[in-house]
């Protein structure tokens, strides 16, 4: 239990998707103009990461890993399908996003109207595929750990995008040098926020 909590906290603050690995930067830069829309996108990312990471974990554990097919038949024990992981992960992500979109549309139209436009965008968000690939690389032991990592990374991403959106809303009233306006200053602010987040590095969990 404690292990799961550690992974959860670590993936929010220390291994933050944006500040430590720059994943999902494209939508981070494009959508962070207002707090409301960025919070919507952040929630959608948490949602999708919370589903795709555990699903990809099961896929990796029972099909892709070297020797993972042993449950089928002892003869498959030395089969290594890990070279297929990119294409299967991205297929799972694309279909999960589609599925989530349809389910949300059916059962919660209000949530759909606030998340709806962001869901297709998420299929090609690097943070989602990155979550699955990190899960594979770090070899989490149980489904619970993988889920905690997925949701934690999503929350970290939400924190980062809401933070930058709030700063960008305020910075409109500042006198930024003209060539730096827009994209340039956003990069520099993200860098400074990253430095602030690095203060969490010292925490031992």
């Amino acid at each position: 239990m404690q292990e799961i909590f550690n992974i959860f906290v670590k993936s929010i603050f220390i291994d933050n998707m944006i500040f430590a690995y720059f994943l999902g930067m494209c939508s981070y830069l494009a959508v962070s103009k207002t707090v409301q829309t960025s919070a919507g996108l952040g929630l959608a990312v948490i949602f999708v990461l919370g589903i795709t990471v555990p699903v990809d974990y099961l896929l990796n554990e029972y099909i892709l890993k070297p020797g993972a097919l042993a449950w089928l038949d002892a003869g498959f024990a030395d089969v290594d399908l890990s070279f297929l992981s990119f294409i299967l992960f991205i297929a799972i992500i694309a279909s999960m996003v589609q599925l989530v979109e349809m389910i949300v549309e059916k059962f919660s139209p209000s949530l759909y109207s606030s998340l709806g436009i962001f869901l297709p965008l998420i299929a090609v968000n690097c943070a989602i595929l990155g979550g699955s690939l990190f899960m594979q690389e770090r070899e989490y032991q149980t489904l619970g750990q993988a889920t905690a990592f997925g949701i934690g990374s999503g929350i970290g991403w939400l924190l980062a995008i809401v933070g930058i959106a709030a700063i960008r809303e305020k910075i409109r009233y500042s006198n930024v040098p003209a060539p730096l306006r827009g994209l340039g200053i956003t990069f520099i602010i993200t860098g400074l926020m990253g430095i602030a987040f690095m203060s969490f590095l010292g925490i031992k969990l």
């Binding site: 060539p179 340039g184 993200t190 860098g191 400074l192």
Partner: peptide
């Protein structure tokens, strides 16, 4: 070597590029 410096460097590259090509400046 730390990650945030990459962001700041790209910010500076954008700054230099846009100062030399004013048509790229955003409103």
């Amino acid at each position: 070597i730390l990650p945030p410096m990459a962001l700041i460097l790209i910010g500076i590259i954008i700054w230099i590029q846009r100062s030399r090509n004013p048509q790229l400046i955003e409103e």
